[in-house]
Design a protein around this nucleic acid. Structure first.
Length: 876
RNA sequence: GCCGGGGUGGCGGAAUGGCAGACGCGAGAGAUUCAAAAUCUCUUAUCUUCACGGGUGUGGGGGUUCAAAUCCCCCCCCCGGCACCA
């Protein structure tokens, strides 16, 4: 009697140990073959795996095993993004050193990851908080510094008061700290930057080679973030003082309609101009208000548009007109030149501002097919294309068409020139925190800012620090701060800022290629062997953070001659968020995690809308909603608990079987049971087959029998169609859901035939089962590996190769052809696949069912699409 | 507002010009069982019909085509991103 229950616990243990022993996931398992670098985004060692990790690493593990089966020499490394705030915050809370906290978490998560059976090459493990890793961050910093790509400058920066540190632009979301959600404020500080803005155009150009290989959304988000806009610089001058005041505009066609200019409240020219004038007090008062009113990004965006007239004028170079100079709170110092020319007739924001302050409106574009507009009658700005008027030599031309000529004319007359502006700013890498890479710089009274000589690296984090939660702990370490100047040997002071942890993650994939090198961050030979990353898998939340930084970093390393490519990640796949249905009472706002919690009278079939009564307030109106599974929402699913209950294979199968993995994943207990059923069924099928044929067929004798009957051919055909479909599903974008569906069909057909009276030939049965096990082994590896052994194999299934579909078996010999009358399905014909077109038409017309429809009608035409369908068009 | 992705049964989703609803979940009926769980079999878009059958149906409206979930035009809605960017 076959065992009926799949003992997943013992099986998982057994094979995880064997895989470890045979070095399945070490590079060189398929030594000498073409390499394939599969990378998942390494985690921050928070201490526990969450569902985001589970879906991420499940997808990459399936790809790793798929590539192993295909015979690639796979590199599948894993490591730890182990610097960062949570460890330091824990230190403040508990007094435990961040290093110990981090190492404990790494140990716990390593255990969980092994439990999940994910195939990583742990020989290549790195942790960014280890000295042998972060010393290379410092080394890179020095290289950047030498190249002029690292600089310290005073600038308004984003400050998170809760995290007590500055943040890069990319790390501010909706005016809030990306990490902790606190409000971010603007502050002027002297900070270290990497000059990423210099790479704006190259980052944009690089997208060309990523198109089709990265998700469209990520490329779109990066393009938006880099924010290229084409236009012109126009050189205005202050009439009264001759100070230069250039502006950037994307609408040089409207230059003749400029009636005022706005400059940012932070603009340095303001104070210089108004000093000593009678309006100084009034202007500066308004400016001070603008500067102080709301320093958070959020407030800035919602703010009402206000301004103050400086009393000065600028001269419009194109027509010599005097234009009022205003200070306006909507002008941004950080974009363009900090000054904006305003054309109220043709820009809605300028229009509103002009109306509010009674500034002149000058129309210079007239609608294509009507009379010129009267500024006094306008209710809104005219922004659609039209014909230029009052525009010097360009009058009479369509504004959009005159654009390039206007730009050429500007440069010819020295009024300005065509330019391109980018929104991307330099990357602020300073952090005022302890748990990160110390920036290798020394400040000397005599020599100024001095980089630490390469031979003095690494600058190691000191341990004589106290974590009080007040200020940067590094500042409390005398041994760290006090040093001597490398140039003049005088007493000097060490930089206490540490690096943004995104510096660490900008090159970890390179270190994985050569993780133990003590001489260089990585050797050119190892980089040549393993880079670039063939498939990167991770969350979309890094679209404008890690994925931009890593690209920028790689480009710089390329320019430094350290690598010979500019794009590190050839293909990128972003998995969807893991969500589940939660229930909220609309009356009392109580959130229930599952339907059983709130009321027995719940409509469980519903996943949207009103589902029942609230237990808390007793009223009707609990509605179902999709909620992202996350710590903050209090509805975490514990991976370990699931692995215990149904095994890792069932969890993997469930995660991949319903939705395509790039969409939102919906977590449900019921679905998990379905996956467990599928696993049991496959297990049972193999066990029953073994029982029925024990000792009859060894794998070696399994050459397919000849003279097979139709039933046997049917199932063979289905098997090879399944191979083809699954291969296409995986290669065509990781559509594991359809791949699994095809396997289910094959298993169901096989079970059906086994239990019916039709005899499956022994060699055919073996071929079917071996195929199913091999194509499912990337998805449910433990089960398939165990069953592979059960049917008589002594070598791992991952040595069996990816099955190749036999072309001759992929097509049917007889098929059903639908027959339509006037486009509606009326009948079906069962015919040979090679039937002649004429014969097919004849068969359709003589079909009994069809005859009843066409009798007495005239046939207009008959469309016959071979192997597809027939459509008979009739009239009357 | 702009950009990207979507809208198909009770639910997740198949089908990318050619049989809409594969596969799975849920639900219903039956078998097995002392009973339950598990398992197995059948049914399951909708309206109409005793039935055979017939009609309708892929967010809404229009169009192209012998044929549209799929292509084109207009509109609505949902998710994600960006947003005073000159």
């Amino acid at each position: 009697m076959a065992e009926t229950k799949f003992d997943f616990i013992a099986t998982e243990k057994k094979w995880q140990k064997k895989w470890e022993e045979m070095g399945l996931f070490k590079t060189g398992f398929n030594a000498g073959k073409e390499k394939s670098y599969i990378l998942s985004m390494y985690p921050y060692p928070s201490g526990v795996l969450h569902m985001g990790h589970v879906i991420n690493y499940t997808i990459s593990d399936v790809i790793v095993r798929y590539k192993l089966l295909q015979g690639y020499d796979v590199i599948s490394p894993m490591g730890w993004d182990s610097f960062g705030l949570p460890a330091e915050n824990a230190a403040i809370r508990t007094g435990e050193h961040p290093h110990n906290f981090t190492e404990k978490n790494i140990a716990r998560m390593t255990e969980q990851m092994n439990r999940a059976g994910w195939g990583f090459d742990w020989d290549r493990e790195v942790a960014t908080s280890h000295i042998d890793y972060y010393k290379w961050n410092q080394w890179f910093f020095l290289k950047f510094f030498e190249k002029g790509l690292a600089e310290k400058k005073t600038a308004p920066v984003n400050w998170c008061d809760s995290c007590q540190t500055v943040l890069a632009n990319e790390q501010v979301k909706d005016g809030e700290c990306e990490r902790c959600g606190s409000e971010v404020i603007q502050r002027d500080m002297s900070q270290w930057f990497f000059k990423m803005s210099k790479y704006s155009q190259r980052l944009l150009d690089g997208h060309k080679q990523l198109k089709g290989k990265w998700p469209d959304s990520v490329i779109a988000m990066q393009e938006e973030w880099i924010g290229r806009s084409e236009g012109a610089r126009v050189d205005f001058k202050v009439k009264e003082t001759d100070d230069e005041l250039p502006v950037f505009t994307t609408r040089p066609d409207t230059l003749f309609g400029v009636t005022f200019m706005s400059i940012a409240p932070e603009h340095p020219l303001i104070e210089k101009l108004v000093k000593g004038t009678e309006q100084e007090e009034e202007v500066m008062k308004a400016v001070r208000e603008m500067r102080s009113a709301g320093t958070s990004e959020k407030e800035l965006a919602d703010k009402e548009k206000v301004g103050v007239n400086t009393g000065f004028h600028v001269i419009n170079p194109v027509n010599g007109e005097d234009v009022e100079l205003w200070v306006a709170n909507f002008a941004l110092m950080s974009y363009g030149t900090g000054a904006v020319m305003a054309v109220p007739a043709h820009d809605q924001r300028d229009f509103e501002f002009a109306k509010k302050y009674g500034i002149k409106i000058k129309v210079i574009i007239k609608p294509l097919e009507s009379e010129p507009l009267d500024p006094n009658d306008m209710q809104e700005a005219y922004t659609t294309p039209g014909i230029l008027v009052n525009s010097g030599e360009f009058s009479g031309r369509v504004n959009t068409e005159a654009m390039t000529d206007i730009i050429a004319w500007l440069s010819k007359n020295n009024f300005g020139e065509g330019t391109i502006n980018y929104r991307l700013r330099d990357w602020l890498i300073s952090r005022q925190r302890y748990w990160g890479t110390p920036i290798p710089v020394i400040y000397c009274d005599k020599c100024g800012t001095v980089p630490v000589p390469e031979s003095d690296l690494p600058i190691v984090l000191p341990t004589d620090v106290s974590f009080t939660g007040d200020g940067n702990p590094l500042e409390t370490s005398e041994s760290f701060i006090n040093c001597t100047c490398p140039k003049c040997s005088a007493l000097a002071r060490r930089e206490t800022d540490t690096m943004d942890t995104f510096v660490d993650s900008s090159w970890y994939f390179l270190r994985f290629c050569d993780p133990k090198n003590t001489e260089v961050p990585f050797s050119p030979e190892q980089i040549k062997k393993w880079m670039t990353v063939n498939q990167y898998v991770g969350g979309i939340e890094h679209a404008t953070m890690h994925l931009i930084y890593a690209r920028f970093f790689t480009m710089v390393l390329h320019d430094l001659g350290l690598v010979d490519f500019t794009e590190p990640f050839d293909r990128l796949f972003c998995q969807g968020m893991v969500c589940k249905t939660a229930y909220r009472c609309d009356n009392c706002k109580w959130l229930y995690e599952s339907e059983v919690e709130f009321y027995s009278e719940v409509d469980k079939s519903k996943t949207q809308g009103n589902v029942g009564k609230c237990k808390k307030c007793g009223r009707d109106g609990v509605t179902a909603e999709m909620t992202k599974i996350s710590k903050t929402k209090l509805n975490v699913v514990d991976p370990d608990e699931m692995f215990d209950r149904v095994g890792t294979d069932a969890v993997r199968l469930y995660m991949l079987s319903d939705s395509p993995p790039d969409r939102m994943q919906i977590w449900s207990e019921a679905g998990l049971n379905g996956a467990w059923r599928t696993i049991s069924r496959l297990h049972l099928t193999v066990m029953e087959w073994c029982d029925g044929t024990a000792g009859v067929l060894a794998p070696a004798d399994s050459a397919r029998a000849t003279n097979l009957d139709k039933d046997n051919f049917d199932i063979l055909r289905k098997t090879h169609q399944c191979i083809e479909a699954v291969t296409n599903s995986i290669d065509g974008g990781f559509h594991f859901n359809t791949a699994i569906a095809r396997c289910n069909e094959l298993i169901n057909l096989f079970r059906n035939r086994m239990s019916s009276n039709s005899k499956i030939d022994g060699t055919v049965a073996r071929e079917v089962l071996e195929t199913v096990l091999r194509i499912l082994s990337p998805i449910t590896p433990h089960l398939c590996e165990e069953m592979w052994e059960k049917i008589g194999h002594s070598n791992t299934i991952f040595r069996s190769g990816w099955p190749i579909a036999e072309k001759s078996l992929c097509s049917e010999d007889s098929i059903e052809i639908p027959v339509q009358v006037n486009g509606k399905l009326k009948s079906k014909l069962s015919v040979s696949v090679n039937i002649e077109k004429a014969a097919l038409e004849k068969a359709a017309l003589s079909d009994k069912k069809i005859a009843t429809f066409i009798e007495g009608k005239s046939i207009v035409k008959v469309i016959v699409v071979p192997k597809r369908m027939i459509n008979i068009v009739i009239k009357g």
